[in-house]
Computed example of a mutant assay.
Amino acid sequence: MFRLFRSSVSRIFFLPLLVMSLSWPLLAQQSVEEKPAFISDALFVYLHSGPGNQYRIIGTINAGQQITFLTEDNDYAQIRYDGDKTGWLPKEYISFTPGLVTQLDTLNQRVNSQQLQLQQLEEERNNLNSQLNSAIAERESALEQLAQANRAYEQLKGQLQATQTSIWQNPMVIGSAILLIGLIFGLVLPSLWPKRRDSERWM
């Protein structure tokens, strides 16, 4: 009876440990999440079909190439590259920060983008300078036309004053003016005298 009890207890006790030991590799493998990574700045890296050198070589991968880290087994890691291809390579060739090649490409892209923006700014500056020069030329032309108009006005004003002065200095004009004044008095004064005489008679 005691032996039966001890065997049943031992089975109950070791059964969870057995299950945990069998499921531990699966749990450890599932705990590794996929994450982006990069190939270190080596010349090239051989890819194997499994986690070790004993597996056949299925290709190479370029330095600095962006990959997806899938899982690891001892000193090897499984990666995904070029869309849906997978392979194994030593973990030492994997970096989770961009390598010098990738950083250089990123810097070149930034430089090209900044050069394009600088070129666009230069074109805008040239356009603005052209518009400013056109506005300055139009302003100078308007000022010149205004100055010409002022000079023409002064000339006409001087000519008019000279004409008026020359008219009154002309003896014929003076004599005509005196004659006209005398004629006016000659026509107006006689018409006033009879009225005064008639008014004196009535008184």
Rank of each mutant, 00 (worst) to 15 (best):
145 Q>G: 09
137 A>I: 08
127 N>G: 14
108 N>K: 10
136 I>H: 03
148 Q>C: 06
126 N>V: 14
154 E>M: 07
133 N>V: 11
149 A>Q: 11
133 N>Y: 13
140 E>K: 12
146 L>C: 07
118 L>T: 13
126 N>R: 15
155 Q>F: 10
100 L>Y: 10
106 T>S: 04
117 Q>S: 05
116 L>E: 07
149 A>H: 09
90 P>N: 05
71 T>I: 03
105 D>M: 09
76 Y>M: 03
72 E>T: 06
123 E>I: 14
95 S>D: 12
119 Q>S: 15
110 R>E: 09
149 A>G: 02
153 Y>V: 06
96 F>Y: 04
116 L>A: 11
120 Q>Y: 08
130 S>M: 07
140 E>Q: 13
134 S>G: 05
71 T>R: 03
92 E>F: 11
73 D>V: 08
98 P>C: 01
128 L>I: 07
105 D>Q: 13
141 S>Q: 14
139 R>C: 07
74 N>R: 11
109 Q>H: 06
141 S>A: 14
85 K>D: 04
90 P>C: 02
83 G>C: 00
122 E>C: 08
87 G>I: 03
135 A>N: 07
118 L>Y: 14
71 T>E: 07
96 F>A: 03
131 Q>M: 08
142 A>Q: 12
91 K>L: 01
77 A>W: 05
111 V>F: 08
93 Y>S: 05
117 Q>T: 04
130 S>F: 13
80 R>T: 00
101 V>L: 08
154 E>Q: 12
149 A>P: 02
95 S>F: 05
150 N>C: 05
134 S>M: 02
90 P>I: 01
108 N>Q: 06
87 G>S: 04
133 N>L: 09
128 L>W: 12
75 D>T: 06
146 L>W: 06
107 L>R: 11
96 F>I: 00
127 N>Y: 14
154 E>R: 12
120 Q>K: 10
128 L>N: 10
145 Q>C: 04
69 F>Y: 11
87 G>K: 04
72 E>I: 02
79 I>R: 02
151 R>D: 08
83 G>P: 00
148 Q>D: 13
141 S>P: 01
97 T>C: 02
142 A>L: 13
127 N>R: 15
69 F>W: 09
74 N>A: 15
89 L>A: 04
99 G>S: 04
114 Q>N: 08
